[in-house]
């Protein structure tokens, strides 16, 4: 199941990227759902060189120390591809937990815990975005209620000044600044005509990506203007990730129905 997200117009230099990718082009996305037997939900999200496996357990009885009488607690475990967890991985865990807490209606499941385990399988740039998308797909697979869907995309400010969407490790390394945004999205099925509805049912349709940020992680050396440009570019990218996520979900449901 693959979709090749084609580039639209946007900022960025015409510098040659690996495999002739355009500055605003995402890498090929692949999403497999229900890959683990014992987890309540799981998904494997890969963007060519980067791949993250996510497993969701819960909502289930929380450990006594963690239990909250009024809401569910979200626990995130981020396992790096190799080696032990360092402070940067712990910081990523906190970041991902924050994003998930923003979309899971925690009040629905008091005294429970929702655990999300993320295992990085391959690492080639934009890993945080990949992990967030994997977590979102796994939560859907586990049937955890979500107040909104979200998608995440990275981009990098190249030293020549252009923005590159979904950078690989070499591009991230050479970049002046790196941005990752998580944005909520939904599909508007109400206002469109019957034709659009039918198209949406087949997994097409345009995602409505919020212009407001759920999670952001930007570092390097950049101006506020670059931040806004990066946000706009990532927003466009998130739209394509959202469309892919929907298509992949529709296909996997069809496959289930066919059995």
């Amino acid at each position: 199941m693959e979709t090749d997200a084609k580039a639209g117009p946007g900022p960025g230099s015409a510098a040659a990227r690996a495999r002739g990718r355009l500055p605003t082009q995402l890498r090929t996305l692949v999403c497999e759902r229900a890959v683990l037997d014992r987890a309540d939900g799981s998904a494997k999200w890969s963007a060519e060189g980067s791949c993250v496996l996510a497993a969701v357990y819960g909502p289930r009885q929380a450990r006594i120390q963690r239990e909250d009488a009024e809401r569910a607690v979200v626990e995130v475990v981020y396992k790096p591809r190799a080696g032990l967890q360092g402070p940067e991985h712990k910081a990523l865990e906190a970041e991902i937990r924050g994003v998930l807490e923003g979309v899971i209606p925690l009040g629905l499941h008091p005294r429970t815990s929702i655990m999300v385990v993320l295992q990085v399988i391959q690492e080639d740039g934009s890993v945080l975005a990949c992990a967030l998308n994997a977590a979102a797909a796994a939560l859907v697979d586990a049937g955890v209620p979500l107040s909104s869907m979200f998608a995440s995309v990275s981009c990098a400010l190249a030293s020549e000044g252009g923005l590159l969407l979904d950078p690989d490790a070499a591009e991230e390394q050479a970049a002046l600044a790196r941005f990752t945004f998580a944005l909520p999205y939904h599909f508007d099925l109400t206002t469109k005509g019957a034709a659009a509805k039918a198209e949406a049912a087949e997994g097409g349709g345009e995602a409505v990506v919020s212009s407001a940020v759920l999670g952001a992680r930007c570092g390097g050396d950049f101006s506020p203007e670059a931040l806004l440009e990066a946000l706009a570019l990532c927003r466009a990218g998130c739209g394509r990730v959202a469309a892919f996520g929907r298509l992949s979900l529709a296909k996997s449901l069809q496959a289930l129905g066919g059995q």
Binding site: L100, L214, G219
Partner: peptide, 23 residues
């Protein structure tokens, strides 16, 4: 010049205007 912008999720979304206000 900005060296980092971090928003670790949460219940409130930050639009571009809010981000600029923070910077």
């Amino acid at each position: 010049r900005l060296q980092g912008v971090y928003k670790a999720g949460g219940k409130v979304l930050a639009d571009a205007a809010t981000l600029l206000k923070c910077t």
